[in-house]
């Protein structure tokens, strides 16, 4: 797990610096319990998945036939999987960028010295306590085209009743919006905390020098918030890639089918469908391997960009 913000390094004493383990056995002994748990629950299943990715397998039938890289070539050549990958990319970019911008804006407003600020903060944070399944069910009720509240209002005001769940563009937009809303609280919590920790003297100095509100925000506060923004960008990317599952499953079941795949079918939902609904274990393992590579790449990017671009302050 990442540290959200850099902690100021404490001056270390000489004794602490020289505290190293004597011998090889002791550090390994300390590591052993963690390594055992990781091996059983992470490394072995991951290796097993990589092995399965080279087989045409069905978990129910227990059949396995070695096919080499065929699962991967089939996936990468399949128009359905390409469409799903593209949809995932668009969905991720939209949820991360719009999600963070709106969270920052709301957190900024909620941290102004105003009456009832605590109430606003509470209301902004509570959706975090909802499970994605409940959030999905709520949205499903709201956007039922015939009896949902949204269409009743739109119908009586403008005489339009959009078909939210089976118009591909609307369904995609709806899932994106729901994902942004669901992630908002998490982002706001971090932004609120960071905004409250902004150095008051710097902000005050800027105001004394005659900076406008917008200037204080964009020229002073925003750069000071880059470490937390950086942290949130990556946790949000991972959330968009993986946590979107429950929301899509309940809201749209990955539909409506358009082109070569469901318009709201994302990589992780496709994997679930193939692996746990249709029991195409080999194909699902290959998808898991591709997603593993994707996460590895994102993590590498995180360290690389983190070292070069982010200003952690002194």
């Amino acid at each position: 797990m990442l540290k959200p913000a850099a902690t100021r390094a404490q001056p270390t004493t000489e004794a602490e610096e020289r505290a190293v383990f004597r011998g090889v056995a002791l550090p390994w002994a300390f590591l052993l319990p963690s390594l055992l748990i990781l091996a059983v629950f992470v490394y072995l299943p991951a290796l097993q998945t990589l092995r399965l990715a080279a087989y045409r397998a069905n978990v129910i039938l227990g059949t396995e036939r070695f096919v080499g890289l065929a699962n991967f070539t089939e996936l990468l050549l399949s128009p359905a999987y390409r469409q799903v990958a593209l949809q995932t990319l668009v969905f991720t970019v939209l949820t991360v960028s719009l999600g963070l911008l709106s969270a920052l804006g709301l957190a900024w407003l909620a941290s102004r010295p105003i009456r009832g600020a605590n109430t606003y903060r509470l209301l902004l944070i509570y959706p975090y306590a909802l499970s994605p399944a409940i959030a999905g069910t709520l949205w499903l009720f709201l956007f039922n085209p015939e009896i949902g509240v949204v269409n009743q209002i739109l119908g009586s005001l403008f005489d339009v009743r959009p078909r939210w769940l089976d118009t591909p563009s609307l369904a995609f937009g709806l899932v994106t919006l729901a994902a942004i809303w669901k992630g908002l609280a998490y982002n706001i919590v971090f932004y609120l905390a960071s905004i409250q920790n902004l150095p008051g003297d710097v902000m005050e100095a800027a105001e004394i020098d005659g900076a406008s509100g917008a200037q204080v925000f964009w020229r002073v506060a925003f750069p000071l918030l880059t470490p937390i923004t950086f942290f949130l960008v990556f946790t949000n990317i991972i959330a968009a890639l993986f946590d979107s599952f429950a929301l899509t499953d309940i809201l749209t079941k990955g539909g409506p089918y358009t082109g070569n795949a469901g318009a709201t079918t994302f990589l992780v939902y496709q994997l679930y469908q193939d692996g746990f609904v249709n029991f195409k274990t080999g194909a699902a393992a290959a998808q898991a391997a591709l997603m593993l590579a994707l996460v590895a790449f994102i993590t590498w990017m995180q360290f690389r960009v983190g070292e070069r671009q982010v200003h952690y302050g002194a």
Binding site: L140, N144, P145, E146, I147, R163, W164, L165, D166, T167, A171, L251, T252, K253, G255, P256
Partner: peptide
């Protein structure tokens, strides 16, 4: 014809009927 737009949405389509929309 109308339905919720989601496939296999038993509850949603029952609700449309019991709310007298079909």
């Amino acid at each position: 014809f109308t339905y919720t737009g989601k496939l296999e949405d038993w509850d949603g389509s029952d609700a449309i009927f019991t709310n007298q929309k079909t």
